[in-house]
Design a protein around this nucleic acid. Sequence first.
DNA 1: AAACCCCATATTGTCTACATATTTTATTTA
DNA 2: TAAATAAAATATGTAGACAATATGGGGTTT
Lengths: 243, 243
Amino acid sequence: MSRTAPTAALNLAKEATRKTPQNDRIYEEMLAAILEQRLAPGTKLSEDTLGEIFDVSRTVVRTVLQRLAHERIVQIQPNRGAFVSEPSPEEAREVLQARRLIEEGVIRLAAKRRTEKDINDLRQMVSEEQQSLDSGNHQAWVRQSGDFHLKLAKIAGNQTLTAYIRELVSRTSLIIVQYQKGNLSSCSCDEHTEIIDAINGGNEELAAELMISHLNACEDQLSLQNESPESDLFAIFSKTSNS
Amino acid sequence: MSRTAPTAALNLAKEATRKTPQNDRIYEEMLAAILEQRLAPGTKLSEDTLGEIFDVSRTVVRTVLQRLAHERIVQIQPNRGAFVSEPSPEEAREVLQARRLIEEGVIRLAAKRRTEKDINDLRQMVSEEQQSLDSGNHQAWVRQSGDFHLKLAKIAGNQTLTAYIRELVSRTSLIIVQYQKGNLSSCSCDEHTEIIDAINGGNEELAAELMISHLNACEDQLSLQNESPESDLFAIFSKTSNS
DNA sequence: AAACCCCATATTGTCTACATATTTTATTTA
DNA sequence: TAAATAAAATATGTAGACAATATGGGGTTT
């Protein structure tokens, strides 16, 4: 009975976000569409078209596009429009580097703060990942794999870092869409399980090493050897035009 | 003469950002106003008023406010308006924790990649910091101190991490405005100098330790013992109302 | 006199219209 | 026929108008 403050504060927080549901709804739908590969990288996102689809004016669409642009999921070219981002190999390496750096720290925090329930939740998530992998549901696996890393950030208990990881995970999904070579190896779930075991045992150092190895393995599964599009053009034509 | 691609790509990049200067100009001005404490935390940012000040419509103002909101410099309350953020002590601790985590990694990268010019630039920046400190120019010092950390991120060479640090530095400035107790200690410049010496010597481990200590020292200079506003209210009145 | 309700006012959320920039297409010329 | 140019069409950038929501004051009721 005493101390209703937390509940009140929570309700207040919910109240604060209860409105502008249109923005959020459209944002979620567009993000999902991009991450589930229904919108390929490079696709033009016409304001009029999107407005018609979601039955809102361009004003609302622009708000959503600007939000997605800030998260680097779409790129806005002034006076030309918004496009689904096509991360360059350099950008891909950068994102993975940032993830190694941040998630190494996050996993150490998570190892310190994890509860029994957290461990159970994580194991449950890996189990579902494995199911998607077994059934060949690539899209679901990419999303669930990202959710696993996001859950670790939430366990670490820092909202700022969680927001950054959410962003990086989204961008990674986009990168995987573009650069994944061949089929995905099934070892990923095992790596996730190893990480759970490490933080369950409170072994920060091991957990950190496993996380870095895991992200390195992810990067190794990508074909990032090629240069950026423009440079490619010059490289491709230099043989004939420069001779 | 051969390989004009990089230059072409650079020009293209400049072209891409040459427009929408209005957004950027107003964004920069508002950010400066907030970080220089001309707009205090909690200040209502009326769309009409700002539109009148900058001589643009609310459309443009809203775009800028949404951008600042995404960077957590302003808070948008639906149907109520935008306000300069008032970071809670919890949020302050979170930001400093995120900075320790990210900047430890960044300083290691910077130590690996720094050039002679970088070191000179950094020493020059610290020198200017010292001048502002000596002349009692608090505002300039806060900005320059942030620029130092931002420069380190640029040396590390990861644009994603640089963007995150820029955001965290801005938020830290806002936090300092709210929670700095007493005068600022002059040791900060010395700490920056020590960090430069460490990365100049290529001593990653030392540089990382110094950076963490430095950020801890920053946090220790803040008065973060109080709880968040809401909780405060309940704590304050619980003695009388609950008896 | 105090508390409550309703309405007036002001501000934000959204839509539509117009201005400006880009892209496409059609026409002209070499 | 192909290239270049001009004009039309299309899309984005901005402004202003209307709708919805929150705030504050005045009046009524107990």
